[in-house]
C-alpha cells in the first residue's frame, strides 16, 4: 500500500442540530491527486475547512504525516477556497507578500518565490497594480500563486477552475500536474466531472454528510462496470443470443451487455465468426455516471 499523507478518521461535525459531517473517512495517498466529489451541501467544504484547521471536528481525528493534525502543519497545507478573493485596494505584490508571510514564510524567501512564480506565469508586470484593476481570471492566478507559494506538502483546491478561461484553466491544470510530479499531494474538489476523469487518481464521494465511496479511481470504475461493451461492425446486423443482449443500436454501433457467467473473450470470438468488427471495447462508467448512480441509490 502506498504511503498515506492524510487520513481523516470518523470525523463528525455538527452545527447545532445540523450534521455537516457524519463519521467521514478518507485517506489520501502521498503524491496523488485526490478528487473530493459530492453534491452541493454534502459537507465537502466543511471537510476542507477541518483539514485546514479553520474549524475543529466534534469527534474523530485527522492524521497528517503520521502525526495528529496540529497548528504547525498550517505551513504544510495550501488552501484555495471556493469562495475566494483578495483585498481590492491593495497592490498585488504587497498582498501576495502579506499572505505568504502569514503562512510563515520569511520575508526574503517569500520575495524570491513570488518572483519565481510571477515570472513563470508571466504576470510580473502586475506587481504594483491594485487588485481592483485586474480581471477576475487574473485575480484567480494571483490566488493560485499565494496558495502554492509556501511549497506545502498538501494542496487543497476547491473548484480551482471556476472563473478561468479555457487557456488559463489549461495552464493551471499543467501547474497542478507538475506539482504532483514534484511530490505534492493534491485534494481537489469540483463539480466538473471531466476534469476529475482527466487528473484524479483517487476519489471520494460524499453525500449527506457521509462518505459513500472512496478509493483509486480505476478500482471504483471497475466496481461500477456493468459488463457492457461497445461493438462497431462494418456491416450486417447483430442479434442477441444466450451470451449477450443488445441494449441499444445506432448505425452499426451496438451497446451490448454480457450475460452473467460469460466471458468477453468468448463473446468476441462468437461475434467475429459472423461479422467484421471495427472496434470492440469495454464500457467503463464515467465518473459522472458513478456519481449520479451512487447518489440515487442512497
Amino acid at each position: 500500500m502506498k504511503d498515506i499523507l492524510l487520513s481523516v478518521e470518523d470525523v463528525v461535525k455538527n452545527y447545532g442540530d445540523y450534521t455537516a459531517l457524519d463519521k467521514v473517512n478518507i485517506s489520501v495517498p502521498k503524491s496523488s491527486i485526490y478528487g473530493l466529489l459530492g453534491p452541493n451541501g454534502a459537507g465537502k467544504t466543511t471537510l476542507m475547512r477541518i483539514i485546514n484547521q479553520i474549524t475543529a471536528p466534534d469527534q474523530g481525528r485527522i492524521v497528517f504525516h503520521n502525526e495528529l493534525l496540529n497548528k504547525k502543519h498550517i505551513k504544510d497545507i495550501g488552501y484555495l477556497p471556493e469562495e475566494r478573493g483578495l483585498y481590492k485596494k491593495m497592490k498585488v505584490g504587497e498582498q501576495a507578500l502579506y499572505l505568504a508571510q502569514l503562512k510563515g514564510m520569511p520575508y526574503k524567501q517569500a520575495i524570491e518565490k513570488l518572483k519565481f512564480w510571477f515570472e513563470k506565469l508571466e504576470i510580473t508586470h502586475w506587481w504594483s497594480k491594485r487588485v481592483e484593476e485586474l480581471s477576475k481570471g487574473m485575480a484567480q492566478k494571483i490566488q493560485f500563486v499565494v496558495t502554492v507559494i509556501h511549497q506545502p506538502k498538501l494542496l487543497i483546491f476547491d473548484e480551482p477552475f471556476s472563473g478561468f478561461d479555457p487557456i488559463n484553466a489549461a495552464i493551471i491544470r499543467e501547474e497542478i500536474l507538475q506539482l504532483r510530479e514534484n511530490g505534492t499531494t493534491i485534494i481537489f474538489s469540483t463539480h466538473r466531472m471531466e476534469s476529475v476523469e482527466e487528473i484524479c487518481d483517487h476519489i471520494a464521494l460524499i453525500n449527506n454528510a457521509k462518505t459513500i465511496l472512496e478509493g483509486p479511481i480505476d478500482k471504483i470504475k471497475n466496481d461500477f462496470q456493468t459488463e457492457t461493451y461497445e461493438v462497431v461492425l462494418s456491416r450486417g446486423k447483430l442479434t442477441g443470443n444466450n451470451q449477450f443482449s443488445i441494449i441499444s443500436e445506432n448505425n452499426n454501433i451496438y451497446k451490448i451487455k454480457l450475460n452473467t457467467g460469460c466471458s468477453s473473450s468468448h463473446l468476441l470470438e462468437s461475434i467475429t465468426k459472423e461479422h467484421e468488427i471495427i472496434s470492440f471495447k469495454k464500457d467503463f462508467p464515467s465518473v459522472e455516471d458513478i456519481f449520479i448512480k451512487s447518489i440515487n441509490n442512497e
Partner: peptide, 18 residues
C-alpha cells in the same frame, strides 16, 4: 465586512486563527 465580501477571509484564516 470588506474581508467577508471580498472573500479573502477564508484564505487568511487558513493561515491564522479567526
Amino acid at each position: 465586512i470588506e474581508e467577508k465580501t471580498n472573500r479573502i477571509v477564508e484564505i487568511i484564516i487558513s493561515s491564522v486563527k479567526p
